[in-house]
């Protein structure tokens, strides 16, 4: 009987890259790391500058709803900073934007991918892309002058018929400059990115699955439900999350449209509210000392919120990818 010879230790496999390859690799790595470094540094900057606020205000900074800095006659400054109301406003406005914007974007993407004649498609794709490059102040002004009167009417209808749902209720029928209007403007603003991501993913639907559905007697809508949505859902979620990122961070348009008041307002139709970004720009000009630090701390909160949303988006996309493919 022969014994089996012992298996050799695995060899170390190396290669000596050429100079050009090393240079390119260095460049790519450097630039790639640079963006990560910039992001980290911004986060660090906000956290460090806001640190004192976090220390003095504590958890109250997130839950508190007042934002005031009172100087008494003796020169003593009493601060009370809390972003709670603005955080709630941020989430509400972004939610309105997603609820209205994502369905519009998905339908637009379906039209462009499966229904539009080639020439209309090309034209519309460039128009939608142009929408993404539009300055947000213009959306804000357009929202204020053109969209708001219409949205006020819709808000009136919602108030009339859906008042029994708490968020559609309001203390008084005063619908001007409400979170609902701001959310509508944001919905228009996120349409380009969500449409573009959805369109890309819909266009990649495997042809053999599309044909399989048609060969089974599917209508176009049936095919889209059975094949395109399961395949593209993760892409749509990803696009929606990019849109959400924009909706969270949008400053100027919200600032233009919304009546910013430092109070918690769950009634989206009612005419006041706020979000963190627009609060920062509102207070920045007059802020001194501790308030400046508090604003940077608020910025840090927004930064973390956006990061969390992106991580959640990644998680959702990965999970739907697993079950969908």
């Amino acid at each position: 009987m022969t014994t089996k010879p012992a298996a050799p230790a695995p060899r170390e496999i190396t290669t000596k890259p050429r100079l050009s390859d090393r240079i390119f690799r260095g460049t790519v790595t450097g630039v790639g790391m640079l963006s990560l470094a910039i992001l980290t540094l911004i986060g660090l900057f906000l956290a460090l500058r806001g640190f004192q606020t976090f220390k003095t205000e504590g958890f109250h900074f997130i839950t508190g709803v007042k934002w005031e800095s009172v100087t008494s006659d003796s020169g003593k400054v009493t601060n009370n900073f809390g972003v709670g109301a603005m955080l709630i406003g941020t989430v509400l406005i972004a939610a309105v934007a997603l609820v209205v914007g994502v369905p519009l974007s998905v339908l637009t993407a379906l039209f462009l991918t499966f229904y539009a004649p080639e020439r209309i498609k090309k034209f519309m794709v460039s128009v939608v892309d142009l929408m993404a490059a539009f300055p947000s102040i213009l959306y804000g002004l357009w929202g204020f002058f053109i969209l708001m009167p219409m949205v006020q009417y819709w808000a009136g209808l919602l108030y009339e018929y859906l008042r029994w749902i708490p968020i559609f209720n309001a203390p008084q029928p005063f619908f001007e400059r409400s979170p609902f209007v701001a959310g509508m403007v944001l919905a228009i603003m996120i349409i380009p990115i969500v449409t573009s991501v959805s369109r890309e993913i819909f266009a990649q639907t495997p042809l053999d699955r599309i044909q399989a559905a048609y060969a089974l007697g599917a209508t176009k809508w049936g095919m889209i439900k059975a094949v395109v949505f399961p395949f593209g859902s993760s892409g749509v979620v990803g696009g929606a999350m990019l849109g959400l990122g924009r909706a969270f961070g949008e400053t100027v348009a919200v600032f233009t449209v919304l009546n910013i008041v430092f109070k918690v307002n769950f009634h989206i139709l009612y005419g006041f509210g706020g979000n963190v970004a627009s609060m920062i720009i509102l207070k920045w000009g007059e802020a001194v000392g501790d308030e400046t630090k508090a604003l940077l701390a608020a910025g840090f909160i927004l930064f973390v919120l956006t990061l969390l949303v992106n991580m959640l988006a990644n998680f959702i996309v990965k999970r739907t990818l697993k079950s969908g493919k």
Partner: peptide, 17 residues
């Protein structure tokens, strides 16, 4: 197409189902 079914060259079941 309901009356005239088809089987393709490459198997194409719906993977999400």
């Amino acid at each position: 197409r309901l009356q005239i079914g088809m089987v393709f060259q490459k198997p194409n079941p719906f993977p999400s189902m």
